[in-house]
Every structure is written in C-alpha cells, then in structure tokens.
Design a protein around this nucleic acid. Structure first.
Length: 355
DNA sequence: AAGGCGGGGCA
DNA sequence: TGCCCAGCCTT
C-alpha cells in the first residue's frame, strides 16, 4: 500500500505556481478586503477579521452582491469584538437580502466564539479555524493561506473549474474531489495566500464558467482541456435532480393607521428567525389559505398577486385588520429598512406598493 | 453521499 | 429559464 501511495504521488500533475504568481502580480483584482501582491511583498498583512467576513459573505455569492454588505458591516462593526457584542437580530437586519441566512447566524456565533475562546484573535491555522461555526474546508484554508501563508489547498468553485479543465477531468467535480485536492496541495508555493487568490482570480476572469480566454492564461501551455479543443466541456456537469414545486399563501395585513403586520419566523428551518409577512405552510399541493389570526379572512381579503420565487409559488393576499394581533408587530410601511426582511418578503410587500 | 439553503446576474 | 457564484451543515 505504501508503494501504491508513492507511485500515485509521483503521478500527480502539478500546476505551475510560478507562472500563476507572475500573472497575478500583474493582473490581481483589487478588493476592499485584500492586500495587493505589491504591498504583500513589502510585508503587509491582511486583516483576518476582514478576510473572514468577506469569505463568509462570498460563500455562493458574487462579489458584486457582497460589496455593499461588506462596507456596511465593517462600518457598523469595525472589529470582531464589535460584531460579537451586537445583538444577533441586528446582524440579521444587516444581512437581509444577501441570502443563506444560516451564514449570518453562524457569523455571529463565530464572532462570539473568537472573543470568548481566542481572546478576540482569529486562530492562525486552518485546522483550528475549521472548528469555528460557519467555517468549513474552503474557508478555513482560505483564511489561513491569505492571512498567514499556510501552505494549504484552497479549493472553491473557481479552483474546481480551473483544475477540471487543466486536467480535462472526465467525471463531475464531486467525484474528482480527491484528485483536485491532491493536485492543488501538490502545487502550493510559499506565497500560499497570493497563490490561492491568484487561482480564484484566474477562475473568475480567465477560466470563467462560460468563457475561457486561453490566450491570456498562464496555464495554457500544459492545459489538457485546451488540447481537447473544447475546454468549456469541463467540468462535466453533474446530474440534476427535479425539485418539487411548492405552494403557499402570504398575507399583507394592514390596519387603519396604515401600518403593516410583521412577525419573526421560527428558530429552525428556512429563513429561520427572519422577519416575514404572516403566511401559510408551504406544501407540494395547492392549499386553501388559512390564517390563524382572522377567522373570516376571506371576507376581508383579496388576492393581490401570484408570483414564483425559486420553487415556491406564492399567492399574496391583502387583508385589513382593525383588531390587535399577537406574535408580531405593526411596522411603518416607510421604515422597513430596519427589519430583517429577506428578499422573498420584500417582493411580497412590493406587490402592494410597499417598499 | 446527497440535499437544502436564497438571491442576483447573465447568456 | 438555467446555471453559477471565494460553501456549509445536516441526514
């Protein structure tokens, strides 16, 4: 077995890290949480709090979407101590619209843990970072490499794609994970942080999902994907599963004072602890609407609109209520900025002209 | 190992 | 419309 491991090791293809770094030194993207390669060469180090915050926000989220949120968070909470001291509800308000709200809950829990268990200083190794909430294989490696040049493999969707093309991998990335990891780990140079960011920039600007600008790519000379004549054939897409469509009802309840009724969702599941307009369960078959607070809802309500959000088809009702309601609060229609309203419920309110 | 999570942008 | 984006967590 040891011999087999040795043989496999000798067969692992390497990425030309020198070529990648030379390209990065000229073409690095400037981002607010980043230290440029030139400043890095002078000894400048990135702020681990900024790097961590940006990495969490960037999970399955584009840079364009993250910019404003990063600016707002660092303005409100300049340090991890500030973030840890903030109420979770305030963090959810600021996160509203960015999606994947478990990230916001884990973000806050992680800040609290860093302050409570690490003296307000982020751990320096990928292994220790990996134990914090919301930090997995990718994010732990990214922080350790970018902040401390730990020579770990940093593998995100960009790197998966670059390597899948570079090696012309015949199977979906999920099945090729060990080979991708071995290849990247085998290639990490001492400038591990710049290398990690370079590979991601390469995937974002040259070796992009639907466009490969091979003429400008530092890896082109050895790229097997290019040699096949169709690098865009990689990575091979996984089989996609059908998702059932779900149906639900949402109620826009307004009182005579022109306020709208909102409430907080439960602590588990979809959009946990976020603000919502009251509604029904979401089921696979279309349900007759039932609203717990108003027995004769159908006498005072009317359908405003029906729209689809992901796999959810939502029917929006307008309801007038003149009695106090429990389990929620009445909000000024013009002051929804202070609510932890996900995009879904902002869409609901927008159908009634409330924004 | 697979599925759920949420939203925006772009071809 | 479908796919992708600096993935993580749960079952």
């Amino acid at each position: 077995m040891a011999q087999t491991t040795s043989m496999q090791h000798s067969e692992i293809a390497a990425i030309d890290a020198g070529a990648v770094l030379r390209w990065y030194d000229r073409h690095a993207r400037y981002l607010p949480w980043r230290v440029s390669p030139a400043d890095r060469a002078k000894g400048a180090k990135p702020n681990p709090y900024f790097v961590w915050l940006s990495e969490i926000m960037l999970q399955q989220t584009t840079i364009a979407a993250v910019r404003k949120y990063f600016a707002a968070f660092t303005s409100l909470w300049p340090t991890v101590e500030d973030l840890a001291a903030a109420p979770l509800d305030d963090v959810l308000v600021q996160w509203a619209g960015l999606g994947y709200y478990a990230r916001a809950r884990n973000l806050h829990a992680c800040a609290v843990a860093v302050v409570a268990h690490h003296g307000g200083v982020f751990p320096k190794t990928a292994s220790a970072l990996r134990d914090l909430p919301g930090i997995g294989d990718y994010t732990s490696a990214a922080i350790a490499a970018i902040c401390h040049d730990e020579q770990v493999a940093v593998i995100d969707g960009n790197v998966d794609r670059v390597v899948a093309r570079y090696l012309a991998l015949p199977s979906p990335v999920r099945e090729e994970k060990p080979l991708v990891r071995a290849t990247v780990q085998h290639s990490v140079p001492p400038r591990a942080g710049d290398f990690a960011q370079a590979m991601m920039d390469l995937g974002a600007t040259i070796c992009a999902p639907r466009r490969a600008n091979c003429l400008l790519c530092p890896l082109e000379p050895d790229c097997l994907g290019t040699k096949t004549g169709n690098p865009l054939a990689f990575p091979v897409p996984p089989k996609k599963s059908e998702k059932p469509r779900r149906h639900g009802h949402a109620f826009i309840i307004r009182n005579p004072n022109g306020k709208v009724f909102l409430r907080q969702r439960g602590p588990k599941g979809m959009l946990a602890k976020m603000t919502e307009t009251p509604g029904s369960e979401w089921t696979e078959t279309r349900l007759a609407p039932a609203f717990p607070f108003i027995n004769d809802w159908h006498q005072v309500g009317e359908v405003l609109h029906t729209f689809t959000h992901f796999h959810l088809t939502l029917t929006v009702w307008s309801v007038t209520a003149d009695t106090p309601l429990d389990e929620g609060w009445w909000a000024e229609e013009t002051r929804l900025d202070g609510e932890a309203l996900p995009s879904l419920f902002r869409k609901v309110l927008k159908t009634a002209g409330i924004e």
